[in-house]
Simulated scan of single mutants.
Amino acid sequence: MKLRLTLVLAGLVSSLIPALAADPAQKQSIAQREFFYIGGRYRGAGAGEVMTGQMYVEVLRPVKIRRRYPLVLIHGAGQTATNWMGTPDGRAGWADYFLSEGYVVYMVDQPARGRSAWHSSTNPMLTAMSPAMVAQRFTAPEVNGNWPQAKKHTQWPGSGPGKGQKGDPIFDAFYATQVEYVASNAETEPMMQAASTALLDRIGPAVILTHSQAGLFGWPLADARPKLVKGIVAVEPSGPPFEDVLTGVDGKARAWGLTDFPLTYDPPATGASDLKVVRDAGPDGPGLATCWKQADPPRQLPNLKDIPVLIVTSEASYHAAYDHCTARYLSQAGVRNTHLRLTDVGIRGNGHMMMLEKNSAEIAAKLHQWIAANVK
């Protein structure tokens, strides 16, 4: 029995070796995994005293570091660092891919989120996304997404009529990772600004990769630490400038153009009301939102102008309708950027959670290629 078990196990291991070798995302070698907390301050007194605003940071170091700058991966609303650690159908995540390319990888849980403590006595109110909202926006927009590109979505893993919806095992595995988050971006941005600047002050220069809501955090981080942010990869960043469209409550938003948080403009803007904005006469084409921009002459964003920026947009996401407005706003403000629509490089069918979809490794490879070519 012992001999037979040994032979079975040996056969199992040998059968796995070719599969592992064939998957580039499995070639990574972790030399060290560690974590720490950054930022935070004590609030309250006596038995009610707590630390608030601290941010959980997980670090993966490859056996051989081949990239000059590490990557800092910052997740979006309702998410945590699990977005980068693996996919709901069991494949390697973007953290593993970038580790295999020789990057040191930092992953965070936003303050008051996930492993970064939230305290009812000190932190703002929380909200959460329902299964129906997650399915509509992220995993099955082809079923009931309310934007023109939604029907093009094909890349969420799984099969059958319930794919991407409650009750499907892959959807349920993803929804299990969803957490409550601070409802107000205006309250989240100062917490992230304090924690993320403290992180860069500790680790030094880095490339920042943001997703969705985290796009709000990359711009002010670069504004505050322009010498330490060597590049920004903004995967479908929160937008568009000045207005919510499609999935939000239509109306004014991001009063500073890219954020609710003050940014450094030239000539200086003492308040968001100093930014004079106008709306384009109409959309650039079918299925696209009409953009808002600064009136001429536009104020510039001097602290961002020397930082290379990549904005990434998938074919079927709600961002397909308006990420061009964010790219155009950056250009108008003197910030060089590349807007990569994945369809331009033959990658089709993706939604907003592209780092979890069937072709996630192919997309990560495109991001790596851009970083290698543009970040010096």
Score class of each variant (00 low, 15 high):
Gln54Asn: 12
Thr338Cys: 10
Gly257Asn: 02
Ser159Gly: 12
Pro169Arg: 11
Thr139Ala: 08
Val345Arg: 15
Val345His: 14
Lys230Arg: 15
Ala45Pro: 03
Ala117Met: 10
Ile311Ser: 13
Ala117Leu: 14
Ala140Asn: 04
Gln110Asn: 09
Ile203Gln: 00
Phe138Cys: 08
Ile311Arg: 12
Arg115Lys: 15
Gly285Cys: 10
Arg33Gln: 13
Glu362Gly: 06
Phe138Asp: 07
Val105Cys: 02
Gly39Arg: 09
Thr313Gly: 06
Asn144Glu: 06
Ser100Lys: 01
Lys305Asn: 14
Val229Ala: 03
Arg43Asp: 12
Ala289Thr: 12
Thr87Trp: 03
Asp274His: 10
Val57Arg: 01
Ile17Val: 14
Leu310Thr: 09
Ser331Gln: 13
Gly48Pro: 04
Pro190Asn: 01
Thr210Cys: 01
Thr259Ile: 07
Pro262Gln: 11
Ala150Ser: 12
Phe171Val: 01
Leu263His: 08
Met107Ala: 01
Trp292Ser: 14
Thr188Cys: 06
Gly218Met: 09
Thr52Cys: 02
Thr247His: 09
Asp89Leu: 01
Leu228Glu: 15
Ser121Met: 11
Ile307Trp: 04
Asp168Cys: 13
Ala289Cys: 12
Lys152Leu: 13
Ala289Val: 11
Asp323Val: 00
Asp266Val: 10
Arg336Asp: 15
Arg4Gln: 08
Arg41Glu: 14
Thr6Ile: 15
Trp256Tyr: 05
Pro70Ile: 10
Ser184Met: 02
Asp344Val: 05
Thr127His: 07
Ala214Lys: 05
Glu357Arg: 06
Arg91Ser: 07
Glu357Lys: 03
Ile38Trp: 01
Gly90Tyr: 04
Ile38Asp: 05
Gln213Glu: 15
Gln294Thr: 11
Leu301Gln: 11
Trp292Ile: 14
Lys252Pro: 14
Gly349Leu: 06
Arg254Asp: 01
Ala21Glu: 13
Tyr322Ser: 13
Glu243Ser: 15
Lys152Thr: 12
Ala128Pro: 02
Thr87Pro: 03
Ser196Phe: 13
Cys325Ser: 06
Pro262Asp: 08
Pro302Asn: 12
Trp147Asn: 03
Ala372Asp: 11
Pro131Glu: 08
Ala19Val: 10
Glu243Arg: 15
Met354Pro: 03
Ala222His: 04
Lys2Val: 15
Met354Glu: 11
Gly44Thr: 05
Pro62Asn: 03
Asp284Trp: 07
Arg68Gln: 15
Gly248Leu: 10
Gly11Phe: 06
Thr127Ala: 11
Ser212Leu: 00
Tyr181Cys: 00
Val57Tyr: 03
Asp89Pro: 04
Leu60Phe: 13
Phe98Tyr: 06
Leu126Glu: 00
Gly90Trp: 04
Phe138Gln: 02
Gly248Thr: 09
Gly102Lys: 08
Pro240Trp: 00
Ala295His: 09
Val8Asp: 13
Pro302Leu: 08
Phe35Pro: 00
Pro262Leu: 13
Gly160Gln: 11
Ile38Gln: 09
Glu315Leu: 07
Met55Cys: 13
Pro308Ala: 11
Tyr181Ser: 00
Ala333Arg: 08
Thr338Arg: 10
Pro70Phe: 02
Ser100Gln: 04
Thr154Ser: 12
Ala92Asn: 10
Thr80Leu: 03
Glu187Lys: 15
Thr210Tyr: 00
Met55Lys: 07
Arg68Ile: 09
Arg4Thr: 07
Gly90Gln: 05
Pro240Gly: 03
Pro62Ala: 02
Leu60His: 09
Gly102Ile: 04
